[in-house]
Design a protein around this nucleic acid. Sequence first.
DNA 1: CATCATTTGTAGGAATTTCCTACACGATTC
DNA 2: GAATCGTGTAGGAAATTCCTACAAATGATG
Lengths: 214, 214
Amino acid sequence: MSELRRVRLYVTVGQRLLRDSLLFQILLHDDVELVGESETGVDTLNRLNLARPGVLLIEENLRDNDGLTIAESALSVHPSLSVLLISDTPVSSARMAIYLEAGIKAVVSKDQPIQELIKTLFYIRNGQVYVGNWQQPPASAPAALEAYQGLSGREREVAQLMARRVPVREIAGQLGVSCKTVHSYKDRIFVKLGFERLPELILFMQRHHHGAAA
Amino acid sequence: MSELRRVRLYVTVGQRLLRDSLLFQILLHDDVELVGESETGVDTLNRLNLARPGVLLIEENLRDNDGLTIAESALSVHPSLSVLLISDTPVSSARMAIYLEAGIKAVVSKDQPIQELIKTLFYIRNGQVYVGNWQQPPASAPAALEAYQGLSGREREVAQLMARRVPVREIAGQLGVSCKTVHSYKDRIFVKLGFERLPELILFMQRHHHGAAA
DNA sequence: CATCATTTGTAGGAATTTCCTACACGATTC
DNA sequence: GAATCGTGTAGGAAATTCCTACAAATGATG
């Protein structure tokens, strides 16, 4: 239902390190197409006509300008563009109001986990506004933590072993079940925790001290 | 030969967004073990004894302190620690000298691609100093571009199709070869270009306008 | 209390990916 | 002329991803 077509994404992020790592995460999803990227605001505006993105992911603080100004210019020419602003700090509701007023679809702060950004990106892809996430920056990982409580015994065992990068083979051996069964647990763990890739699980398990120590 | 043991990594990066995305990239490598992370310098120093990392990845500019100071404190207690500093801007040779003097093993700037950081991380893991990368921040991607010239005809065809996310099935069909052959090309492309995952190829192809446009 | 729904432990299939090896053929080199 | 290298081709093993299946336990409900 949300698979209308690929998202045409333009990314404006000043620092290469952040831009690259965001892009690597985002491009893991095969319904995103990168149509352009810039380090500065003017460069973005110059290239927008050719790139014709559906979504613009832009930093608030750019070398040459601020993201809000650039976004407003872009929106005046391409009103259908969905803009996702990346702010350096958590946004107050007052600032959020300004952003929404300007036609920006959503804001994520750099203090939020990357999954939040990705989730928001996919949420606004079809033009929706997303205001669900500007209030809980200090809430570390309540959703996933709660979800962890919901894992069954077997699932936790597998989660711990996987997070220590024990190969499926050995997990199966240790638990005395087939590899297929281990995969089933793995699938269910990922579904329950809302993860998609092993690094997410490793990071989660390590952060919450769930057996990451040998 | 370099597989002595897993790298025990501690990461000190203020912003969650950057920290998470770096970690997701780094944890793709199964010989890295995250033993701790902090947002601030003092927190890092407090936890270092328990975490016992072999490598400390730390930002230069932290909320409470500067990375250099923290690194020096850490090194005075744990002289065998390999410190990799992430600087906000390209480092001058003068500053590089200061860092080396302080016992820091390598510096990468936020203007460099993330692969550079990863490469450096693996380079310094066993205590080596790495000074090869502080001079060419504006040199975009000469290595990979050169490497691209080295691709054979078939390899380029496959690279272009893969970058457009054409499924292996279809690529095989279009080229009239077996899926296995396509995989072989893929393997060779990745080896030649030094990539490890599809997003790297997609990003590269897109950036250099090699057939990314439909 | 008996039945219906959900969760949990178990497993298999199909398509893909990753990593590695193999091999023939043409070109280069010594 | 013989050894080597790059290229096009392909296969195998293990892992991953995405689905489906099913029986036993658990829980909920009429």
